[in-house]
Design a binder for these strands. Structure first.
Ligand SMILES: [Mn+2]
Ligand SMILES: [Mn+2]
Ligand SMILES: [Zn+2]
Ligand SMILES: [Zn+2]
Lengths: 144, 144
DNA sequence: ATCCTAAAACGAAATCATTTCTATTTAGAG
DNA sequence: CTCTAAATAGAAATGATTTCGTTTTAGGAT
């Protein structure tokens, strides 16, 4: 149905199944981020059969391929967000209403004040973390 | 015993119990971040009794009070790190050896290259997220 | 249009890191 | 030294997420 999403899936090397398309449609319509179970509960009505593991699996795959973005939440549960901005950027997420706002730049100190002043919101905390391999480990191809 | 840690605990309004001090000592000696269970297994030898929930509870409390820092890990398990740098800063963590390096500035794009070149490491991914309340939600004191 | 096969989905069950709960112990103020 | 709120034990519960063997399906090939 939705050619945009079908194309995105094809570009990601994934089959355009009805359930994947429904997940993308629902998440795109969502104003903020959503949990796998929330999406599952609402998607169940549109299919005679839909397993929660299927939702988990697809969200993770779509996130891994960059079609969806994952939210790092203090409660450490999984949340996903559909962001049409294909440029590299980061997010401001509201812990109350789950709204997600794009953050164009990456200067954190300046960013906090800017977000706080421009949107009138309050930044309670921020997470900045670089994951990777140090020099010694990058050499030999160790993992984990 | 360790006056520095006892003082840090006092400053945080926490009692300087032997187990808390042992947790801090062990984590300070650790070259990288560690999980609650790893610390527990090694601390058990030093006490006739030590519950895993106690380690979890103390790590979380110490993290909340800023004595320890929490690591955001792709496997979504809990890891903690003792950082003596009391200035506001961020971390580069190695997914292979768990080493943690301070990152003084917050310009992410520049940072990735800088970390990659200066330390010879490889940045596989980064997380930048601001958590807080948007304008609408900051007004009324809603939570979650 | 039909076949074929790797990919996707099912769904019950398992996993297991983390939390909860109640009784017991203890740090540290007075 | 006493007293009490804070801290801990330890068993049990929790529940989000994953696993697994089976069944179904998307989509390229014929
Ligand atoms: Mn975005
Ligand atoms: Mn540090
Ligand atoms: Zn390393
Ligand atoms: Zn909000």
């Amino acid at each position: 149905m939705d050619q945009r999403h079908a194309s995105a899936l094809k570009a990601a090397g994934m089959k355009a199944t009805p359930k994947r398309l429904a997940i993308l449609e629902m998440l795109e319509a969502e104003p903020g981020y959503a949990s796998p179970e929330e999406l599952w509960k609402r998607l169940k009505d549109r299919f005679d059969r839909l397993g929660l593991p299927t939702v988990y699996r697809n969200l993770e795959e779509l996130s891994a391929s960059g079609v969806l973005s994952k939210v790092i939440h203090p409660n450490r549960q999984l949340y996903y967000y559909f962001c049409s901005n294909r440029e590299h950027h980061h997010h401001f997420v509201c812990l109350s209403c789950r709204k997600v706002e794009d953050i164009p730049a990456c200067g954190i100190e300046a960013l906090e004040q800017e977000v706080s002043k421009r949107n009138g919101g309050k930044v309670l905390s921020h997470i900045l973390q670089l994951n990777g391999l140090c020099g010694g480990c990058a050499d030999n191809g160790e993992k984990q």
